[in-house]
Design a protein around this nucleic acid. Sequence first.
DNA 1: TCGCAGGTGGTCG
DNA 2: CGACCACCTGCG
Length: 295
Amino acid sequence: MSKGTGMKPKLEYERTAVEYIAENIRDFDLDHIFDCGQCFRWERRPDGSYTGIAKGKIVNMRYVPNEAETGTLIINNCTEEDYQNIWRPYLDLDRDYGKIKAKLSKGDPVMKRAVENGSGIRILHQDLWETILSFIISQNNHIPRIKGCIEKLSVLFGQPAGTYEGRVWYDVPGPEVLASLSEADLAEVRLGYRSRYILGTAKAVVRDGLPQTAEELAALPGVGPKVAACILLFGMAKYDAFPVDVWMARVMHQLYGLDQKDRRAMADYASEHFGRLGGFAQQYLFYYIRSLHDK
DNA sequence: TCGCAGGTGGTCG
DNA sequence: CGACCACCTGCG
């Protein structure tokens, strides 16, 4: 609704002419992908598209379903080379999610509903360091504040990656940069007690390199079982990882009848029933319980 | 105001 | 081991 006589300029975003169009993309929904809790740097636009930064590249993505089962993905500010080298693997486009969903749904009515609810979820292949940083920050924290912290950290200490939609976008700061900072330097980011975990982990990574295994991950300060599982799943492509957080505890209690406090039992249940697909199962269930909660 | 949020690490028994 | 419990911060 326009008010009075004011001709409010319509909000428009400055995008680029370079665009890549991928046809015949299945099992894909941007809301499902970017709102299932795996990433924190994508912003929804009023047209349903998403703009974000990953691997030093800034793009806008929109998806147009053209039949019941397939659709077109349009990536703005993206060359064919970037699509092949970055976004195709990032979006996990070469995996058959239809097969995964069918396998998980079989004999499990709860999972069947969860899969239908989040049918377009895909597990992103994210940068390992960014994933470590993000999920240390995520602990005992609200999602909007997590996003704010990561953004502020990037603007203050990250490298500019380019200008897009009329503003400068920044990469998350690397471990070398963070390892050189003090808690006083980080105070402005409002990370709270997590700032010492970030500094400790950055120093460990500078000293020992990025973690390669679950054991090396668990040795990092601020990385417990839940955060480690998220990093394994989202940053290391370990698809049997099954992060159990407060939401997953709710699902396992309310929908599978397990003791809400017994995280061990939940992990056991996941490995027994979901096995190598535990990570996918977790994402469908997480998105499902969150969408139930919002209503 | 107070509890809680995609938990972790430390300290008990 | 397993069960507490403090912990930065911002929001409802």
